[in-house]
Structure formats: C-alpha cells, structure tokens
Design a protein around this nucleic acid. Structure first.
Length: 836
RNA sequence: GCCGAAGUGGCGGAAUGGUAGACGCGCCGGUCUCAAAAACCGGUGGGGGCAACCCCAUGUCGGUUCGACUCCGACCUUCGGCACCA
C-alpha cells in the first residue's frame, strides 16, 4: 500500500470521473432530502392503523466522523426498513447517539475541550452526514444519551434495579486499566489488555457497583424465543455463560482449631474424589492467612505479592507454568480420611466456583503438571479402557471404570458421579451445585463522562438511594478531568457534598459513573417516546412498538451489548414495567467493510475511504447501491473505488431508460413473444427482489434488477414490445429500485407524471403464472456429463423427454455400443441417461 | 489448544444435490471521433483442435450418489470467537 495519502485521494477522484453522469445525483440528493424533511416524510405516527415494524440499527458513538463502515451498516438497513414500509408496515427506524464514553473525556484531557462541547458538536456534524444517506430516520425521535433527559432514566432504572436487589455494592478484585485509570467490565478486557487502549490490565480490590446478571444466567441461556438470531451469537452467549453442573464438596480442616472447619471446593468430576492428592486455593482466598504456618509464611507472602503484580495477560495465559506454594497445612478428604497438603496457586481463580480446587492429577491436565512439578502423588481412579496399570504420561480425561475408589469400585464413572454425590449430600459434606463462568456485571467507572450513579453515603444511615423526585443527579459541568484513579467527581466539592435524604445530615455522593453499556441496554425503549417525562418510556407505546422486529449491528457485541440488553428486558419484565421477555426478535449481523487492500481500514494504514467525498461526486444512491452490491451483507468485503463506477453507470442507464418516450415503440410492429418474455422477466424479478430483500440478500436483488434493465435495453433496441408493456415494466422496475436508491427513483417517479412520493407506494407483487417459463433448456446428460441441450416446452412429459434425449445425435455418440440401464428425469431441468 | 465460519476466473461475487462462473469490475476487439475520454456493441476460466467438438477445472485427498461448489470423513489455509472456569 502506497503511503502517499494526498496523491491517492486525487487519484481516486480521477477514477470516479471515468463515468460521465447523465444526471446530477448530487442535486437530486439535496432536492429530495430537503423536500422529505420539509414534508415530514419520515415522521412516524403512533396511531397508524397499519401493522407496526420496528427496525433498529445499533446507534453510533459520536466520534465526529461518519466513515464508510457506518454507511455499510446503515444504508442496507435503511433499504430493508423502506422495503417493509412499502410492504404496508408502519415502520419505526430511529437514530440516536451513544454519547457518553471515554473518547470525549480523552479529548478534554488532550485538547482542553469540554466533553459536552466535543460530543455535541460531533453530533451536530454527524447528523448532517447521516442525513446524506437518505435514510428514513425520524429525527423527532432522536436520542442523545449524554443529555439529562436521557440519563435521568438511567438513574431511575438503576434505582429500580437497586430496589429489586439487582444492583449491589461489593468489594471485589476488579479488572483495572492503569492507562485509562478505571475499572473495566470483564468483557472489556480483551486478551488481558484494555479493549480501548491495549494496555495490559491489572487487578485491584475496590468497592464497586454490580448488577446481578448471574441471577438471570439460566434464563439468558434459554434461546427459545431467539430462533431468528444467528447461531454463532447464541453459541458465544452460551459459552460466555459457561454453565457447569457439579458438586460443592468440603474438606475437613477442623484440626487447625480455626473458627472455619472446612474448605469448600467445586468440581464437575466428583467421580474422581478418591484421586485427590492435594488442594489448591486461590492466592486471594480468605483462609490463606489463617492456614499458613509460620515456617511457610515468608514464601507464601512473597508468592501472593508476586501474583498481585503479575498482569492478567501472564496470569491467564495457558502457556504460563503452573506454580504454587505449600501453606504448611493439611485438610482431610472425608470420603477416605486421607490427609492432603494445601497449596496456593495462581492458576486457581478466586472469582470462579469457591476459589479452591481439589487436585486430581490423574484426571485433570492442570493438576497433572502441578503434581509433577511439586512431586505430588498421582492416583488413577477412573481406569482408561485397556489400562495396564502403568503410570500416565498425561492426565486421563475420558470415561472408564472406577478404581481405587472404595465402595464405588467397578462402577462406570458416570454411575460413580451420581452415587458419590448422593452420599455426599446424605452426609452433609457438600451438595450438587451449578457454577457459571459468567460474573456479575460491574458498572462503576471512575470517570467523568457518564451517568452519575444516584447513591449517597451517609455516616449514620449508610448507603441511601437518591429519592426519585430528586433525579436527575446532574453531572456538574465544571470538573477536573485528570485521571487519577478516582472519579473526577470526587474532587468536585459541590457535587460530592450533599445531605442525606433520610436524616438530612451531611453526606457524600457516589462519584463513580455508569458503564455506557447501561445506556444502550434499554435505548430501544426510549425511541418509542423520546419526550416522555413520567418515566423512561410510555408504557402504552412500548406495548405498541416492542419488541424490536429487526435489529442489525456488528457481531462484536455478542457478549456485551446484546447480552446486557437481554438481561435488562428480563429484569424490567419481572418488575412489571414491560410485558415481553426479549428485546430483539430478529437479529442480523452485517459484516465488515474492508479497504481495497483487503485489510481493515485504519488511519495508520492510510487506507480509509471517505464517504463524504464519494457521495459528493456520485451521489448517495450510487454509494448505497454499491455497498449492497459488493457481496452478501453478512460477509462484508473490500471496497473498490473502480467498482463503484459499475453501479454509477447502471444508474445512468436507469435514468436513460426512464427518459424514453414509450410511444416511440408504436412505430414498429410488436413481437408477442418478446412481450411475454418481458412480462415473464418482470414477474421473476419482482419475486426475486421480494425474496432477496426479505433475507438481506441485496447483492443478488440488485443483480436481478440489472438483468431486467439489460433486457429492457435489448427489447427497446429491437422495438419489440408495445408502449403499455414498456410503461408497466419501467414503472414496476422503479418501485423495486425505490428502497435501494431512494433519490433517483423519487425524481424519476415525479418526472413520469406521478403525484405523491414513490416511497408511499406498495411494493410490486408477482404471480407465479406470469413468472413461469414456457420453454426450457433441457439438459441431456450421459452418466452425469452434459452432452446436449434441447429447447423444449417447460411441461414436457418424461416419456417425450426421454425419446428426444435418446434421439440426440450427440447422445448417440456416447451411448453407441453400450446399453442404457436407466434414465433419470428431473422435470423442468434435465434428463440423465445412464449407460452400462 | 477448543469452538465457529469461509476457501469458486485477473478481481468482487452467483448457483432448492441437476447447464459452474449470473451480475458487476478489469481486460481485449469493434462503432463513434482528427484524436482521446465517455457512451454503445461483441468477446473474455485453462488446455487441445482449421472446425464440429473434446479434455481439465469450485483449497487438497478420499467417500456417498445416475449426478457433488453443494452432503459425509480427513487434511491444508484464512478469518472470527473463547482460552487455566476446576
């Protein structure tokens, strides 16, 4: 990739001029966008008698510039929404801004602009860019999450969640980004690095606000109402929740004379309980300081200190050697009375299960390497098939018969699991339990540009929620943004100091703000009544519009936004605020638009495509068409500066075709066969467009429309059809093209003498009879290889087809001297002659 | 390492188990032009043949089938996701 960015841009502009435009698309964009706006063409009424269709796109972050990736997301989605509208739906296709978040604050720090100023001016600019798409957004419904009218309802919802016990404060080891100086959600730590700035993350113990999403783990695992979601998203959510069934089993430590008499561990392999030869606790486990003997304390403390410093990327890597330190203490396995040494090891996570594991080196690969390193015994208790009693080279993870297992000897390990679990429960040594990989959702952020968490700390009353009538808790405009690790709000005395709502004594406000995923977890509800001031949404309107019928956005939100939104809707449903259980009925993930060099677009690579420039030259319709034409929407694909000329030329031809006077055709005799063929192709095209647009297969829909224009050009050149047929064809064609290219079709609709907008017309319908072929090309195969092609009536009978096939000279040359064993006939398709 | 998706002309891509390469880009030839661009018309997977035609070809190797880009198995490559979850 050449790095001379400047000359490349001019080079690209030259390429565009390879098409000489016969009409002025830029003028049309302006004319119609203004007129649609003036006429309130895109305003959506709540009292429309037609069935509703809520088509939602993931709203953008107002970074200040709409790039071609936004176009790739929004233009096809708009086409689909327009298509549904022409099908007779009252379509809500709203747009807004995900306006809180770090970049605004970083701009404030690096350039001295207030986040509010930066964000709002970006929004202002992006509104104009979004308008250039020509989409049917109803701007009266726009939402901007950083405005108090929106975020007060974040606070309101937070209070509701708190009342339900779904929001709580806890000290927890949290993911910390030392560069952003804030806590991150688990989901925002990517490969041990901060999602935003790529800095290796560390852990910190902090008092934080959490949402109890784990309470909903099982319900979030129920995908029965999500049959129209892509399977890969469901799989990701399934794995993210990571439900495992097992047993919590405790080991006796009463001999240590502590208040705590046992250590609890979680295992999915209780069948291996007789193979336990040691225990490992997470370094952060609360029993560690109590159990450590004086002799070992030096080593243990050093190990803990080191584990704290180790970045997550090292600690979580499967490559890292498993290390640990003996505490000097022992526990007893109650099933066989054995004494087991207790270790700490950083491969045990405090956040999963009970923070302690039973070490079964024979049947767990991690325990195996740990045992080897510290020379701990390895005892096989589930015998591999045809095991000869020799030692293992690696852990055996498969099934087998129980051995060295006391009363359970000889059972299959699956039977053993149940029998042992039963006995453990009978003796109250533990119980069957379910563990989840999923953690509660940490929503506290030590940053300024977010929704203040509406909580107050009072020395007398403890944690007191801000009363509803005191909302919103406004973000003070005059805060210092320097990231110190504490929220900037903590340094703002005016914000910090308040009165306790209960006792009216002096109190302090919570100074953390909310994760912006909180905002987007319910924004689809706000669009139905963006002005509503008695609650986050008008319940009647929510009832009317939701759930979202079609949601589109990137797959990168699989375990974050999409997951959180599902949780919110379930929680709100439980509170009786809404009456549905899933926010998005259908989900479609569009792919990623790549640069011409097939790499991801990035400023550093210098391969970014600027949509404004191309729209300013070729018009919005050409860009819309080309983005949809590149390939299947869910696959994404490379942009091509030359390729867009193809659709531009095509739109030129469309302009040309519609500009012809159909009466010119009267000067020539009409060919009835050509008329039938034309009508047939029209109906086939309508059918194909309908089916393809329904399923987001824009590329093949456009290809079919191109074929129709090619056909029309041909019959025009031959003057083979009559003016009435021509008129019907071009009119229906225009309607088919309308959702794809709204500006040119609106202009041509007006020019051909129609009053009213083309976009208020019905999408054309087809009938299969008119679309049916009269003649087909019957493929004749011999042993599966094509040997001849015959023009025959479409409804030809098998016997007749067989006779024709066998009579073919070409077929004869391949069957000569051989015997025909049978023929296979596929009606309307082919006949295959099988010889020998 | 595990899970998932995808590999088709020079390029983007099309094909309910039934004509592989629709549509478009690019390229080649022609028309128009003083010339070029644009536009329009025609051609365009590889190999062989004067030709009619024939052979080969959808990542690789097998399999199922009258027939496989499509279904099954193994492998290779690319791209996503997860990655000590006991």
């Amino acid at each position: 990739m050449a790095s001379c960015g400047q000359s490349e841009v001019t080079g690209m502009a030259t390429i565009h001029r390879h098409v000489e435009l016969r009409y002025d698309p830029v003028a049309l964009d302006k004319k119609w966008q203004e007129r649609w706006e003036r006429d309130g063409h895109h305003r959506v009424s709540d009292d429309d008698p037609r069935p509703k269709w809520y088509e939602l796109v993931m709203y953008p972050y107002p970074s200040g510039d709409l790039h071609i990736g936004h176009w790739y997301h929004y233009a096809p989605a708009d086409c689909h929404a327009r298509f549904k509208r022409m099908q007779g739906y009252n379509v809500l296709h709203p747009m807004g801004f995900d306006a809180f978040g770090l970049p605004a604050e970083n701009a404030a720090i690096s350039r001295g602009i207030h986040p509010q100023t930066w964000t709002m001016s970006n929004i202002e600019y992006m509104r104009g860019q979004l308008r250039s798409i020509g989409a049917i957004y109803d701007w009266d419904r726009e939402i901007v999450t950083c405005l108090p009218e929106y975020y007060r309802w974040n606070q309101w919802l937070f209070l509701k969640l708190y009342q339900q016990g779904l929001a709580y404060r806890a000290k927890a080891p949290v993911v910390w980004c030392p560069s952003c100086n804030t806590v991150l959600a688990n989901e925002q730590a990517v490969n041990g690095n901060c999602e935003r700035c790529d800095t290796p993350i560390t852990r910190r113990d902090l008092e934080q606000w959490f949402l109890r999403i784990t309470d909903y783990a099982d319900r979030l695992l129920d995908f029965n109402n999500l049959t129209d979601w892509p399977q890969n998203i469901l799989t990701m959510q399934h794995n993210w929740i990571g439900r495992s069934e097992g047993v919590e089993i405790s080991f006796d430590i009463s001999s240590h004379g502590l208040e705590v008499k046992e250590i609890s561990t979680f295992t999915t392999r209780i069948d291996t309980i007789f193979g336990v030869t040691f225990l490992v606790l997470a370094p952060e486990h609360p029993l560690v300081p109590l159990l450590t003997t004086g002799e070992q304390s030096g080593q243990v403390e050093a190990y803990i200190a080191k584990a704290r410093q180790t970045s997550d990327i090292d600690r979580l890597s499967t490559e890292t050697e498993k290390t640990g330190v003996f505490l000097g203490a022992y526990a007893v396995n109650r099933l066989n009375g054995e004494r087991l040494p207790i270790f700490i090891g950083d491969y045990v996570l405090i956040t999963y299960g009970t923070g302690a594991v039973m070490g079964v080196p024979a049947h767990d690969s991690r325990d195996f390497v740990f045992a080897q390193k510290y020379r701990l015994p390895v005892r096989i208790v589930v015998a591999p098939i045809s095991w000869d009693g020799s030692e293992l080279a690696e852990a055996y993870l498969g099934d087998g018969f129980m051995t060295n297992s006391g009363p359970y000897e000889g059972m299959t390990n699956e039977e053993g699991k149940e029998a042992i679990a039963d006995d453990i429960e009978k003796n109250a040594w533990g119980k069957r339990a379910v563990s989840y990989r999923l953690r509660d959702w940490l929503i506290s952020r030590q940053r300024y540009w977010g929704t203040p968490i509406p909580m107050i700390f009072c020395d007398h009353c403890g944690i007191v929620p801000v009363p509803e009538e005191d909302l919103p808790v406004l973000l003070p405009p005059d805060a210092e943004f320097k990231p110190t690790g504490e929220s900037p709000l903590a340094a703002h005395q005016g914000f910090l100091n308040t009165r306790c709502p209960k006792c009216a004594g002096p109190a302090r406000r919570e100074t953390d703000t909310m994760d912006t995923f909180f905002d987007s977890s319910w924004y689809m509800l706000r669009y139905v009544s963006p002005e509503h001031s008695d609650g986050p949404f008008d319940p009647g309107k929510a009832l009317e519009w939701l759930p979202v019928d079609q949601y589109t956005g990137g797959a990168e939100h699989a375990v974050m936004h999409l997951f959180y939104a599902r949780f919110f809707i379930k929680a709100l449903n439980d509170m009786g605020l809404i009456n549905f259980d899933e926010p998005f009925s259908r989900l479609f993930n569009q792919g990623v638009i790549l640069a011409e060099d097939h790499a991801r677009m990035s400023k550093s690579r210098g391969n970014v495509v600027d949509p404004d420039e191309i729209v300013g030259e070729l018009g919005a319709d050409a860009v819309r068409c080309f983005l949809m034409f590149i390939g299947p929407w869910d696959q994404g694909g490379p942009w091509s500066a030359v390729g867009i000329n193809g659709v531009s030329r095509w739109l030129n031809r469309v302009w040309d075709i519609l500009g012809r006077d159909p009466d010119d055709l009267q000067k020539h005799p009409t060919d009835p066969q050509a008329v039938r063929a034309t009508m047939r192709q029209l109906h086939q095209t309508i059918r194909k467009c309908h089916n393809d647009l329904e399923r987001f297969k824009f590329n093949t829909a456009i290809a079919a429309l191109m074929e129709l224009t090619n056909h029309l050009n041909k019959v025009w050149a031959e003057a083979a059809i009559d003016p009435a047929t021509w008129r019907e064809c071009v009119e229906k064609f225009l309607l088919l093209l309308a959702p794809i290219a709204p500006h040119i079709t609106e202009e041509l609709w007006e020019m051909s003498g129609h009053s009213g907008s083309i976009h208020r017309q019905d999408f054309p319908t087809w009938d299969d009879e008119s679309a049916a072929e009269e003649l087909i090309t019957l493929v004749v195969q011999v042993n599966g290889k094509v040997r001849d092609r015959l023009e025959v009536p479409a409804d030809i009978e098998e016997a007749a087809a067989q006779e024709l096939a066998l009579a073919s000279a070409k077929v004869k040359s391949f069957t000569e001297g051989k015997s025909v064993s049978r023929t296979i006939y596929v009606p309307g398709r082919l006949i295959n002659v099988v010889v020998e």
